[in-house]
Design a protein around this nucleic acid. Structure first.
Lengths: 342, 342
DNA sequence: ATCAAAAATAGAAACGTTTCCACGAAACCT
DNA sequence: AGGTTTCGTGGAAACGTTTCTATTTTTGAT
C-alpha cells in the first residue's frame, strides 16, 4: 500500500523548483493575470511536476474563511430535509462551498453545540431548521451568532434571514376542499405551536371554517408535534373514538407515515371510510395504494433560495436587513378524498 | 443588528489578561493536568471574561488535521444513504468529528472532484459509495488518495477498507422462498454488474435455481441499474410481456418505487396477480397497502461500522491491512407473496 | 538613448494555534 | 544542607498560505 508517505509539496517547494518567490506562486494561483505568462508557465510546470495542491487548512487560516456552510437539521432521513439539502448543496457548491451536515436528532443540546462549534472557524455561514423556536439555549446561541445564518420554515424574534412556506393558505385550501366534499368532521394532525408550520397550519384550518361560517371541530384538532409516533397515536385515537372523523389531514410527512400505520392497523379504507390529505410529495404519498391528495410545495426552491440568501449575505449583502421569503403551496388532487353525504 | 463586530479574542488576549504565556493558555485548554490549579483558575477566568473560543482554522492548520470526515454519496434523499449517514455521524461526532456531506448525483466527475478536494486539507478521512466500480477517473483518484477511506457496499481492486452486505445469500433465500411458493417465472430487477450489489444479487438469484435444479428464467433477469426509472421501465415491460412473471424481486429501494409505479399504472394487484419482494426497509415497503416481504439488513450497523473502521485507521490502525467487513441480510415476510398453483 | 510610469516580482510579515526547548522553582532523595 | 529530578512556565519556532511593501524589471514616450 503506497500511502503517499512523502509529505505533500508546499508552495515553497513550487517556488524553489520554478525559481520564483512564494508570493509569485501564490499569485499564479489566485490572480494569474497579474503574472507574466513566461513566469506563469514555469510555475505551472513546477506545480505539475510536484503534484502540488494548496492546503485548505492553511488557506482557511490565512483567509479567515473556510468556504464551508453548516446545514443543521433534526433528521436528514426526512426526505423534506434531504431534498432541501440537495438543492442548497448544488447552489452552494457552484460557488465553491462545501457543506457540513449536522443531524441533531431534534435535541436542543446538539443544536446549540453545532451552532457553537460552527461559528468558531468551521463554517462561514449556517442554514438550519431548529427544533423549537422557543428553546432558550438555542435562541441564546443564535442571538450571539457571529456568522450569517438562514432559518428554514422557522420564525424567531431575532433579525435573521428565513425562507418560509405559506402553510396557512395551503391549509385553508385543503380544508375548504374537504368542506366542499361535504366533510364537517375533519381532523388535523400536525406540529405544535412552538414551530411556525404548526401554528400556521392550525391558523389556516380555523380560517377555512370561519370563511364557510361553520363551527370548528375542536375535538379533532391535534397539533402537538410532527413525529410519526404522534401521528400514529392521534390517528388511532381518532379512528377509535365515538364519533370518528370523516377526513384526516396529516400535515407533515412523518405524521403521514404514522397516520397510515394507524389506518392500516385498524383496517380502515381510504377514501371509503375516511378521506385523507397529506403534505409534501414523498414516495409514500405518491404511491400509497394510489396517489394521496396533498398540499405540495417546491422544496428545491426553498433550498436554493436559502443558499442564495446566504451567499448574498456572505458577499455583497453583508449588512442588509434580514429578509423573510415566503413561498406558496398548491393543492394536488389525488384519489384519497371522497364526497360524503351530509 | 449587533453582528459581533469586535474581532474575537485570541489566545494572546487570554494570555495577556491572565498574565501568563500563550503556551500556558494552550496547555490549559489541551492538557489541564499539566498546569497548576492556581494558574488554571486564572486562565479560565480570563477565557470566561473574554468569551474566548479557539479558532478551528488555526487549530487545523497547526495540528495538520481537521476532525472532519467526508461522506460521499450519489443521493442523500435515498433513505438508505441517509440512515447510513446518520449512524456514521453519531459514531464520529462522539469522537469529535464533523462530517462533510457531498451529494454527487451519481456523476463520476463530481465524485472525483470531491475526493480531490477533500484530501488536500478539508477532511481527515472519507466514507463513500462510489457510483461505479469501474470508472477510471474515480479509480485513479482513489488510488492516489492520501487520506484513509472506507467504501460502502463497493469492491475495488485497491487495498481499501470496505463495509459490505452479503446480498448473494439474501437473494438466494428470497428466491428460494418464491420457488417454494410455487413460482417459477420470477423476475429480478436490480443494479448492473459495475457495482457489487448488482453482481451479487444476480449471483444469489442464479444460485437459488441451481440449488433447486431448476432452469433460470433468463428472460426475466433485468440487472442494469438501480434507478426508479429503470425499475418502472422494466416492470412495465415485464407486466405487459406475453408471458408475465408471477413474481418480481425489486432489488433496490429506488427500484421498488419504479416497480410499484408500474404495478399501479397497470392495475395489477399484489399479491393476487403478482408476488413482490423488495430490499431494505422504507416507509413505502412497510406501508404500501400492507408490508412488503423484503430482504432486510441493518443499515445503522453498516454506517456505524464504517465510522469505526475509519476511526481506527485514523488512530491506532494507521498501517493495518485493509479490512472488508460483510453483514448478513434476513428475509422478513410481509403480505406481498402468494402461493401459485403449479 | 533616457527617463518616468507601470508592471512584475521578491521577501517578509501575518493569520492563531500547538509544541519544542530551555530555564527557574519546587520537590525529592540521601 | 546539597544535589538531582520533576514540575511548571515562558518564549519562540513552526504549520502553509496570502498579502503588503519595497524593489526590480519592463514598457512607453520623448
Amino acid at each position: 500500500m503506497t500511502k503517499g508517505r512523502a509529505k505533500p509539496a508546499t508552495i515553497r517547494d513550487v517556488a524553489r523548483v520554478s525559481g520564483v518567490s512564494v508570493g509569485t506562486v501564490s499569485r499564479s494561483l489566485n490572480a494569474p493575470d497579474s503574472v507574466r505568462s513566461a513566469t506563469l508557465a514555469k510555475v505551472r510546470a513546477a506545480i505539475e511536476e510536484l503534484g502540488f495542491q494548496p492546503d485548505s487548512r492553511a488557506q482557511n487560516m490565512r483567509r479567515r474563511s473556510t468556504l464551508t456552510v453548516g446545514f443543521v437539521v433534526d433528521d436528514i432521513a426526512n426526505p423534506l430535509h434531504a431534498t432541501t439539502f440537495k438543492a442548497a448543496d448544488a447552489e452552494l457548491r457552484e460557488h465553491g462551498f462545501s457543506l457540513y451536515l449536522v443531524n441533531t436528532s431534534g435535541r436542543a443540546r446538539e443544536e446549540a453545540d453545532a451552532i457553537d462549534m460552527m461559528q468558531h472557524g468551521r463554517a462561514d455561514g449556517l442554514i438550519m431548521t431548529i427544533n423549537s423556536e422557543r428553546d432558550p439555549t438555542t435562541l441564546k446561541r443564535l442571538a450571539a451568532l457571529r456568522i450569517p445564518s438562514v432559518l428554514l420554515d422557522r420564525e424567531i424574534s431575532l433579525d435573521v434571514d428565513a425562507v418560509l412556506t405559506d402553510h396557512a393558505v395551503g391549509m385553508t385550501q385543503a380544508t375548504e376542499h374537504l368542506i366542499d366534499l361535504g366533510h364537517r368532521r375533519i381532523a388535523l394532525i400536525t406540529g405544535g405551536p412552538d414551530i411556525r408550520p404548526g401554528r400556521e397550519r392550525v391558523r389556516g384550518f380555523l380560517e377555512a371554517f370561519r370563511k364557510r361560517g361553520l363551527p370548528v371541530p375542536q375535538d379533532l384538532l391535534r397539533a402537538n408535534n410532527l413525529s410519526a409516533d404522534y401521528g400514529f397515536r392521534e390517528a388511532s385515537a381518532l379512528l377509535q373514538g365515538r364519533e370518528r372523523p370523516t377526513a384526516i389531514i396529516a400535515a407533515g410527512n412523518r405524521t403521514l407515515t404514522g397516520v397510515l400505520r394507524a389506518i392500516q392497523q385498524q383496517g380502515v379504507s381510504v377514501p371509503g371510510d375516511v378521506s385523507l390529505i397529506a403534505c409534501d410529495q414523498t414516495d409514500l404519498a405518491r404511491l400509497y395504494p394510489g396517489p394521496i391528495t396533498l398540499i405540495d410545495r417546491d422544496i428545491e426552491e426553498i433550498g436554493r433560495t436559502a443558499a442564495q440568501l446566504l451567499l448574498d449575505r456572505l458577499g455583497e449583502g453583508r449588512d442588509r436587513p434580514a429578509q423573510r421569503i415566503s413561498f406558496p403551496t398548491r393543492l394536488i388532487l389525488g384519489g384519497s378524498c371522497a364526497a360524503v353525504g351530509r
